[in-house]
């Protein structure tokens, strides 16, 4: 099981992560980022891609 943490102080809700890991990240109706804090190991590649494309580098995988 993977644990995901987004630093919401840093996050500017650009939503780039949404395209890389759509099952984990989404923008809500107020254009704010929401995410699922745990994921199956099979999501690791997508989450790492989301970490890479985050302009604010606000996403972390907690092993």
């Amino acid at each position: 099981m993977l644990k995901i943490y987004v630093d919401m102080e840093k996050c500017q809700h650009y939503g780039q992560c949404v395209f890389e890991a759509p099952d984990i990240f989404r923008l809500n109706s107020d254009d704010k980022l929401e995410y699922t804090a745990t994921a199956d190991d099979s999501e690791r590649g997508n989450i790492e891609a989301a970490i890479d494309v985050c302009p604010m580098q606000a996403i972390f995988l907690v092993d």
Binding site: L27, S29, D31
Partner: peptide
Amino acid sequence: IGLRSVVQKYR
């Protein structure tokens, strides 16, 4: 400017 969800849809 703002309206990120709208911009995202066009990607």
